[in-house]
Computed example of a mutant assay.
Amino acid sequence: MPHTHHTTLISATNLAERLAASPGSVFLADCRFDLAAPDAGAAAYAAGHIPGAHYLHLDRDLSGAKTGHNGRHPLPARGALVAMLQGLGLNEHQQVVAYDAHGGMYAARLWWLLRWLGHDSVALLDGGLQTWQAAGQPLDTTESPRSKGTFKAGAPLAVTVDVDAVVRSMGTHEHLLLDARAADRYRGENETLDPVGGHIPGALNRFFKDNLNADGRFKSAHELREVFGSLIGATSPEHIVLQCGSGVTACHNALAMEIAGLHGAALYPGSWSEWCSDPSRPVARGATP
């Protein structure tokens, strides 16, 4: 019996039904993390995770090597990412479901990375681990076994721009930047993660948590389309560049735009942490772009 192809979100109910009917058809990824305590996610996984899930660490598995000038969470090498996923047992065309307990702020990174590798059968568990537990579904404390998978990369379904393209756009206005950080960090206040506070001149602010309802689930496609549409105006999605502090929560806005049917936005992976590493690049502060 064919299964529904999920490319953005899946509910806890639908996931539980699918796992009961065909557990091997789903690759589960636990992406819990804490920027202030990098080992907290792995500890939470060990304390209890969705049965069959593998743990993916933001720094070790979903990011590449830092140079001091490429941001706090540079993209991993494509080959290394493919090999890691193969080693966990991911197969070609397999449905991936990623989750965390933080509104999707880390799981969305894996969603974006898999699309970057050409794999569109990837969805977030809407509402995260909390909705799974609220539905009375079980947790497991044993590490899931690994096997050799058949996964391989295809043509990218997600695109990036580099810092040079962002610099050029300041003169050509080819791109419109959306900054996913909280409003205070965008304004240059209360900056604790990066050495410089502020934002890239011209960037608009769209806090990623505003994509969610109070219950932690994503807002409807209609709601997201209205709010992103009012923000970007006549700019086509293909000319939108998404950024944040280090290229992680910007993926949350990418997912929200995909849910809204606004396809084609690019990611600036280095984001603010790369931008501010060069003192010659301009900095804007305050609430205006």
Rank of each mutant, 00 (worst) to 15 (best):
L125V: 01
A134C: 06
R168H: 14
S147D: 01
Q133W: 02
S144D: 02
L129H: 01
V161Q: 04
A134T: 06
A153L: 07
R146C: 09
L129G: 00
Q137I: 01
D126P: 01
V166L: 13
S147L: 01
V166K: 06
S169C: 11
G149I: 03
P145R: 07
P145N: 06
S147W: 00
L139Y: 11
K148I: 07
T141Q: 15
L157I: 07
K148T: 13
G128W: 03
A153Q: 08
D120W: 00
D164R: 12
V122C: 11
D162M: 02
Q137Y: 15
R146L: 08
L124C: 04
K152T: 12
Q130H: 11
A165K: 08
K152I: 01
G127D: 12
T142I: 04
E143F: 00
P145T: 05
A123N: 04
G128P: 02
Q137P: 04
A158Q: 09
G127F: 09
P138Q: 13
T142W: 05
Q137T: 02
D140A: 15
A153W: 04
G136F: 08
S144W: 02
D126T: 01
Q130L: 09
E143V: 10
M170K: 13
T142F: 06
Q130W: 00
P145C: 04
L124P: 02
D162W: 04
P145D: 08
P156S: 10
D120E: 14
T131Q: 14
A158G: 11
G136T: 10
E143W: 00
G171D: 15
G136D: 12
W132N: 07
A123K: 01
A158V: 11
Q133E: 15
E143N: 01
V122T: 06
K148F: 00
H119N: 11
V159D: 13
L129N: 03
T160Y: 04
D164K: 13
L124A: 06
L124W: 06
G171C: 05
A134H: 10
A165S: 14
A123Q: 02
A158C: 13
A155V: 11
V163A: 15
A153G: 10
V167L: 13
P138E: 14
L139M: 14
L129W: 00
A165M: 11
D162N: 15
G149Q: 10
S144K: 01
Q137M: 14
